[in-house]
Design a protein around this nucleic acid. Sequence first.
DNA 1: GAGCACTGC
Length: 997
Amino acid sequence: MSSLKLFISDSLHGLLGYSDSALSSYILSLALTKCSSAGSLERELRDSGIDSKGLGNFVREEKKEKKDKMKEGEKEGEEEVEMKTGKRRKTQNEGSSSEDETTVVRRKKVSGRVVKKGEKDEAAEKDEATEKEMEEIRDQREKEEFEKRLLERDSKNTKKKGAGEQDAGPGADVSKITSSEVEKMREESRMAYLEQREEKELRLLEMSIKDEEEMFRGVERTPKEMERLELNKKILAMAKGRKKKEDEEEEGYRVPDGFMDEEGMINKDKKEGVMKQRYKEDKEEKGEEELWMESQINKSKIGGGKEGRKKEGEKEYELVFDDEIEFVVGNKRKGKNKKGEEVGSDDEKKLPVYAYRQEFLDAMKDHQVLILVGETGSGKTTQIPQYLHEAGYTDYGKVACTQPRRVAAMSVAARVSVEMGKRLGAEVGYQIRFEDCTSEKTKVQYMTDGMLLRCFLTEPDLKSFSCLIIDEAHERTLHTDILFGLVKDIVRFRSDLKLIISSATLNAEAFSAYLDDAPIFMIPGRMFPVDILYTKQPEADYVDAAVVTTLQIHVTQKIGSGDILIFLTGQEEIEACAETLTMRTKGLGSRIPELIICPIYANLPADQQAKIFEKTPPNARKVVIATNIAETSLTIDGICYVIDSGFAKQKSYNPKTGMESLVVTPISQAASNQRSGRAGRTAPGKCFRLFTAWSFKNELEENTVPEIQRTNMGNVVLQLKALGINDLLNFDFMDAPPAETLMRAFESLYALGALNDKGDLTKLGRRMAEFPLEPMLSKAVIIAEKYKCVKEILSTVSMLSIGASVFYKPKEKAVHADQARMNFARGGGGDQISLLRCYNEWEENDHGTQWCFENFVQVKSMRKARDIRDQLAGLCERVEMEETSCGLDNFEPVLKSFTAGFFFNVAKLSRSGDYTTVKSRTTCYLHPGSVLAKDEVPSKWLCYFELSFTTKEYMRQCCPIKGEWLVELAPHYYSGEDIEEAKGKKMPKQRQYNKTR
DNA sequence: GAGCACTGC
């Protein structure tokens, strides 16, 4: 609490200090009451912090170390390993090698079958097998040998023990193992893990060397690159040399395979007995977690699943991987309407919603507001608006249905227009940014939620609508959350307006409570049951675990039983996962059916994205490796197995520094359930969660923190202000954003001149709200009029607002891509001017695709930039802003205009050579991707587009500016003092003037 | 020398 107080008084001092402090005390009191009543300070702090709890950090750390390890080559301390495998290790120690138990089960199969295969291969390998395959075989050998030794030793131990116990008399426990033996076993398993890891790293290293040599043949390489390559080669040679030596040494221990086979069987039973005994002992100690898991398992059995499916399934395994993961059956997601007929042509009649038509219309008659709960497949999105239309609600206004995504709005509208037999754009239409497919005749209108929000600006009472349906409300996007507040207000004074909040999850009570206890109307979904399986122990590396699980599914489940969908966090992981999968399936060759690997993430070029929708050929299985994009945005048919890493990248915002960060965070229970639902769309499915049932219950939040609580609110505040909502701190948010975030938004809008000292919208603010841009960008556009560079700033702003996806950098042509990008930087001006040059050149080349290709620029992004630019230009025309131009030779006006919007984001070069933000004194770094990163003489002053924390505080999209500009452009924010230090001499003290507002 | 999850106006 005290820290918040401090912050508020601080910021008010800096910002509002000069003015009459009516606003400040007002805001302060509101902020404080809001904050204490919401009790959200703790959450805020957590949100703004960079550390995510749970496994996220661990995994990251672990990965980084993995890389380090690879560089260090063979140096590997025991302690380090202990740390790396910490999570897994811990449970193993506590839960006392339940893993070993399974290792034995596996071992039998490995030696029983794969070895024989291996022998055959060995005969033929000289002529046939590729180098990689040979290595695979050798790997396999090594592991098996190690396991055999382990078994042998174990059997000796057990025998010895057995003899000893007999001496001690009857009743002595055969299964008791001394602690030194436990220690030994631990070490063994540690070694095994280490060995496996080492092999993997080596293989990867080898591949990367090979790749580099092949792909860059004939391409000039920098000395650094050459150096790295040489170093890698050296490491590989050294490691291989050592391996060879070890192999030779091991040769002496070799035991005939056949012998081991049998021996393995005998040992297995004994050891299993031992392990089970210990397992039970431990379970008693462990208590809650195990008990809960057990209860979950029993529940699923009662639930009518195929009892003991897992146990039986194991026996069916033909091919077992030595790093196999064990899963525990968890609860079952119950299917709705188990018969679930195939979707046919007249399927809407079979949709669950159909049976509720009359009931629904009756409910509509009685209530103004209704919460509609219907899971995926209930048909609510397509049918409900039609029912309303048929019932005559469209006689005095349109029925609007909002969707969080453009594609959804378009496709649903198209579907409904077919069902109604009307042309799209006539009675049924949609409205999204850049596309208005409606007409005067339109009765049923689908639109994005952001679009409806924009409608409020022109039509505050929404009088052209008779019904509003806010669909997918459970997603809690920023726009839906704001809509809630606005529509709640509207229904109070427009008794003729009907409101439906439609959600797919059961936490509808929250919506109901928020909307004055509105009645909840339930429609069952059409879902198939999904078995949920958890890992028995935490997995240290979920990417690796996902690969293994995929192979397990692929090998053990019948081909044609369904495709696999893996949820990972981002491009990097997806690529790594796809690579490992390719490698391992290649290694297995024809022993397994074909596995088609399809990565998908938003930045993937469209043609590659389309691959996931191709039908899987018979005798093959598709595995889709996706980000969250597959959670909501797209539906892939035929998925029956979902592998859920339990993580996603989530944006969080720290209002103190204004810094956004994208962090790998554990997902919520709700999100995990959403993911598992993806397995049961066309047939009964299974969801493999790569975490334990315990962590699901105890470590995952129940619901995802709504976006409104972890994002910058500048734009929202400006828009709400433009709608005439003045008392924002008392605005009826369903979940209020953190007070600090609102404060920061106020502060920045005030400094930009969008709000006056009373907190009211200024003329400038009203103009800014017209632009569909972040306030700082809008300001830059408006100021450009003064500096006569509107044409240039519009292009720059459009390019900036599409994000970082402009330049495309394929791995194999990274050097060329970088070169192409640096070409745009020639002539100076930093990233902003580079983007401007890029846009201009594209325009000069007739918006050509070929040009994009040659310059490693993404066409998709450029087209988007053009759309945005056209829209902005249109808006400028409407406010009679002339499209002036300053040309490219003198780009100073462009940078000045940009700085006029982004003067918050200015960093100064300190003596130590780092940059420090001028006001908040945060140390930050020039992003290596910036064109300025290669400059030899760093600019004294930088103005950046965004500050984002990844591994460091990085400034992205930076341009060099002059210190004097700050006093000229933002005299109320910067004084001479702020810049004199860098100038080295005293500047005449400038009086604050702030009377213009 | 890093790495950008997903949306939307």
